[in-house]
Structures are given as C-alpha cells and as structure tokens.
C-alpha cells in the first residue's frame, strides 16, 4: 500500500512531521493500526537498523528516525490498546540503583521500541524491588538493566536474585561499560549485550 511505503520512507529520512501527518491520514483511511505499525513504522526502523549495522548511516540518523517513529507510534498506541493488540512483548528497563548514567540505557530503549517491543522505562537510580515489582505487575517478559560504575553493577545481582527467588520466568539482560558476558554468567543473568543493536538481537532471542 502506497501510504505505508511513504510513511516508511519518511521515517527513514527522519522526517517526523511527514510521518505524523501520514500516520494520521492512514488512521483516517481506516487502515488496521497493527498493519500501519508493522508495515510502515517497524519496517522502516528495521531498514534503518540494518543500514546502521552496515555503517551506511550514523547514530544521529538512527535517532532522527526514532523520533519520526514515535510521531506515528504515539497516535497508534491508544488504537492498538483498545483492540487489545500488543507488540512483541513488554520489557522493563532502567539504570540500577545509585547510578545516574542513562544515555546507554536510553539508546537501548529507543532501539527496542523501534523493533516493536513495549518498553517500560523506569529511568535511573532504580531500586532492585522496583524492577521486579513492575515486571510482575505489567506481565513483562524481560528486565533490562544498565550500570556504568563498578560500584553499582553489583545491584544487578540483587535483581537477578529477586527474580530467581520467585521461580519467575522473567528473563534478565544487562549492559553498560563495566559489565561483561562473564559478569552476566557470574550473577546468573540470561544475557549481556555490548550495544543497543546487539541488545535488540539478544532480546529477540530471549523472548
């Protein structure tokens, strides 16, 4: 459908005004919101993700496209919710207690939303209990945690322990500069990702 391709095109160009206007038009034409989401917004973001991976475009390009994606997504959300349609699954993300560094976590959140996940971002300085309580309440399938300090990365284990204590099937993925695959194994997390693109791949594998 022409309009869906156009939305995807403008999204890839990072033109949020055009994406906003055309998404509105598509909704007015009574197109299925799930089709608009999958075939224009997520399809466009997937192309952007691929181009970024191949170094054909740069991070600011990806971020401008992400803004454009939200210009469409924010209009679709209430429609999707009213039809009881959810995305690929809910994930809860945040920067661990004591830590204020959130740029890396924000990038991960943007890319996960772009890939079609429902992201609940708890922000920074998030207590361990809050991660777990929110994930349970929201029926989230995964918790993603970020830490940039060696002193705060230990808080990740507390969250893993709380999840395991309940025998819950919530998956845990971690990231941030001082964190590694070895550390993830050591604390019993399900995965570690080194950047936002890798985070999307890992989360897709996990849930």
């Amino acid at each position: 459908m022409e309009i869906l391709n156009q939305i995807s095109e403008y999204l890839q160009q990072g033109d949020d005004d055009k994406v906003f206007a055309l998404t509105k038009e598509a909704i007015e034409q009574d197109l299925n919101p799930k089709v608009i989401l999958d075939n224009s917004l997520i399809a466009g973001m997937n192309i952007i993700g691929e181009k970024f991976k191949k170094h054909e475009i740069f991070l600011p390009d990806v971020l401008m496209s992400a803004k454009a994606m939200y210009a469409g997504l924010d209009q679709l959300k209430p429609l999707l919710a009213s039809k009881g349609i959810s995305g690929l699954g809910k994930v809860v993300i945040g920067t661990v207690q004591g830590d204020l560094h959130d740029i890396g976590k924000n990038l991960v959140g943007i890319m996960l939303k772009g890939a079609g996940f429902d992201v609940i971002d708890l922000g920074k300085d998030v207590p361990p209990e809050k991660f777990v309580e929110t994930a349970k309440r929201e029926n989230a399938k995964l918790i993603g945690m970020s830490a940039l300090l060696t002193t705060t990365m230990t808080n990740m284990k507390k969250v893993v322990d709380l999840v395991r204590k309940d025998n819950s099937d919530i998956k845990v993925i971690i990231g941030g500069a001082p964190v590694s695959k070895e550390f993830a194994d050591e604390i019993g997390a399900d995965a570690y990702a080194y950047d936002a693109g890798n985070a999307v791949e890992c989360v897709k594998e996990l849930i």
Binding site: G14, L59, M64, A66, K67, Y70, A71, I103
Partner: peptide
C-alpha cells in the same frame, strides 16, 4: 529533550 523524543538533539548535546 529525551522525554520529548528529541533523541538526536539530546544525545548531540549530551
């Protein structure tokens, strides 16, 4: 800027 979805400007400024 991040709250307003202006990620590109936000991270450039950051």
């Amino acid at each position: 800027l991040f709250k307003e979805n202006d990620f590109a400007l936000g991270s450039m400024l950051d």
